[in-house]
Nucleic acid binder design. Structure first.
Lengths: 180, 180
DNA sequence: TATTCCATGTAAGACGTTACATGATTGA
DNA sequence: TCAATCATGTAACGTCTTACATGGAATA
């Protein structure tokens, strides 16, 4: 249950509603682990059935009643055990790689357009991540463990997007050369 | 249907059996797009039902009979249309990021071990990809479109693994510092 | 007045993994 | 003789997405 673990990890830091999780888990993790609210409500129900989280009904004035979830000590234990257990890296499965691989079927301009579109998307994400880094970690002193643990996923995101852009540039360069 | 497209893309280059695809789709694409043989047989049956691929029974001496699949012209058309249609990048969902994020629950040594294990796994993949590059593309002249299209996914794999290793190094460095 | 935000869910189906099942040939 | 390779499939289950469904409050 990969999504469930991400939700649990988020609920350990602070209690949240299904709605809140659906918007974004947390600064840092939530930048990558998004899911539809349907899936999140489903996982929350399952986690609660396993006593890994508990919910508290919070009535609000002028707003819908909330169901505020937080991790139980059992939830912490189970997550700690999972962390200690080796897991496999997820494979690199990207539509764009398939498109490039089969790119002989379409005019090169079509391929180049899609590559440029991806480049823009990844540049936007990179810019956003860098702003978040600036905002949340500009005065990180390097000896705050908790800040380090929140920073590292963001750092991975920054590297990941930068690498994407570098590859797009290489691809665009090589395919443009072909056209001339 | 993401896996189905990867299979189709592979079958456009040469006819293959389900067994062959399960071992690896193709040099380049197959380095990333692996799937179980069950899923592949399932997708092949579906693709054939849609007339995107056709199968040919090949009887062999001393070996089981093969079902050799190849793409139809309809299959090529459908794939070409899909390539032209914009698709979204897949999100970065990695167990290790969740583990780091919730790493406060375990001793740092546990986290460091898992980080080092990932580092080794990604280094192994990087080495393998670099060997494949050396083997298949060492004398690429840069004006062969087909070679370029096969090279680019591999290049992405190399960058991806190198980026992973760099991040693992950063994480190990930061967490080791914390311990001292 | 219309849209967005807050807030929660059910149902159906697609996608993917794990377990189960078979059987001949080749190499260690 | 035992394991691996070639070769194909079914069944059950888990994960995830898409569509459907509701309803009040705030904002444009």
């Amino acid at each position: 249950m990969p999504l469930a673990h991400a939700i649990l990890a988020s609920l350990i830091r602070h209690a949240r509603t299904g709605y809140g999780l659906a918007k974004s888990f947390d600064r840092s993790l939530g930048y990558f682990w998004n899911a539809t609210h349907q899936q999140i409500y489903h996982e929350l129900a399952r986690l609660e059935a396993q006593d890994l989280i508990i919910s508290e009904i919070v009535e609000q004035e002028g707003r819908p009643t909330q169901k505020l979830y937080s991790a139980t000590s059992l939830g912490r234990e189970v997550l700690a055990e999972w962390i200690a257990q080796p897991t496999e890296p997820s494979p690199l499965r990207e539509d764009l790689l398939v498109k490039v691989f089969a790119g002989g079927l379409v005019p090169r301009s079509v391929l180049l357009e899609e590559l440029k579109r991806y480049r823009i998307l990844h540049l936007e994400k990179l810019t956003f991540y860098q702003e978040m880094k600036q905002h949340d970690f500009s005065q990180m002193n390097g000896f705050d463990l908790d800040a380090t643990l929140r920073y590292l996923p963001l750092s991975r995101g920054i590297r990941y997007e930068a690498e994407w852009i570098a590859w797009c540039d290489e691809a665009i360069h090589l395919l443009d050369k072909e056209m001339s």
